[in-house]
Every structure is written in structure tokens, then in C-alpha cells.
């Protein structure tokens, strides 16, 4: 694998768990054991009901593009060769939103409401990023 030069998450605390599941090809979010609320990004306790108990629960992986931007000029040196690139906020069936990208859609063709399905891109031996592809069904 050639050296990966873009910023990576730090595998500490809840992020170690979240990205650990991604490495196994699973998108999991915290789901409160008390009230059943899903949450992302990971938190210490449930802001809805106050419960400290949760379970990393598997997402359907399905969602739709809630909003997006197309970056025409990178403002971080690591992305200088990536522009133009699109960044999307995906609203999952479970209700949480996550920031990612839709990998197989040309930025000019992105649309709010486009249905997408999670996939994983192994960028290093330790880290797989959750990305999306246009849903086939």
C-alpha cells in the first residue's frame, strides 16, 4: 500500500471503537439502552434521557444526502491534489447524520435526497473510512 497522506482519525476512546467496527466492515452507532435513541458522534451519556448505558448497534447503512459542498480549492495542504472534491452530510435511516463522501458520484451530479449506501475504504492497515455509494435499490 502506498503511503496515505490525508488526515486520519486518532484511534482513542470511542473513536477507536467506531473505527474498529469500520475496519470490520460494520457501521455502528451508539444506541441508548435506556430510551433507544441513536447518536453520532459518540458521546459519554444520552443527552435525551441521561442514561450512561449504550450498545454499539449496527446501522442499516442506508441513508440519503442531507446537504453537501463541492470544494473547489482545498484549504488544507493535504487535500491540494484532491480538489475538486465533494463532502456530504448523510442522514441515516436511524436519524443520525454523518459527514462523509459519496465516492462513486461525480460532484456535479450530487443532489440532496440522493439515496446512498455505506461502504468502507481501507486507507491504511489500521483504518477504514466509512464512505458512501449511490444506492442500487
Amino acid at each position: 500500500m502506498t503511503e496515505y497522506s490525508l488526515p486520519l482519525p486518532v484511534l482513542e476512546g470511542h473513536s477507536a471503537d467506531f473505527y474498529g467496527f469500520c475496519k470490520e466492515g460494520e457501521l455502528r452507532f451508539q444506541r441508548c439502552d435506556g430510551c433507544g435513541a441513536w447518536r453520532h458522534v459518540p458521546r459519554e451519556l444520552c443527552a435525551e434521557c441521561g442514561s450512561w448505558d449504550w450498545t454499539w448497534t449496527r446501522s442499516s447503512g442506508k441513508g440519503e444526502v442531507f446537504t453537501y459542498t463541492v470544494v473547489g480549492r482545498a484549504l488544507h495542504p493535504a487535500f491540494a491534489d484532491s480538489a475538486p472534491y465533494a463532502v456530504s452530510v448523510v442522514e441515516m435511516e436511524e436519524g443520525v447524520r454523518m459527514l462523509s463522501r459519496v465516492a462513486d458520484v461525480d460532484p456535479a451530479e450530487l443532489e440532496i435526497g440522493m439515496r446512498v449506501q455505506v461502504d468502507f475504504e481501507a486507507v491504511t492497515e489500521e483504518i477504514s473510512l466509512p464512505i458512501f455509494r449511490r444506492a442500487t435499490v
Partner: peptide, 8 residues
């Protein structure tokens, strides 16, 4: 760091 920057 963990959820925004990796995607640009």
C-alpha cells in the same frame, strides 16, 4: 479531527 478532517 476524527470525523471531519479525514473527509476534507
Amino acid at each position: 479531527r476524527d470525523y471531519y478532517l479525514p473527509f476534507g
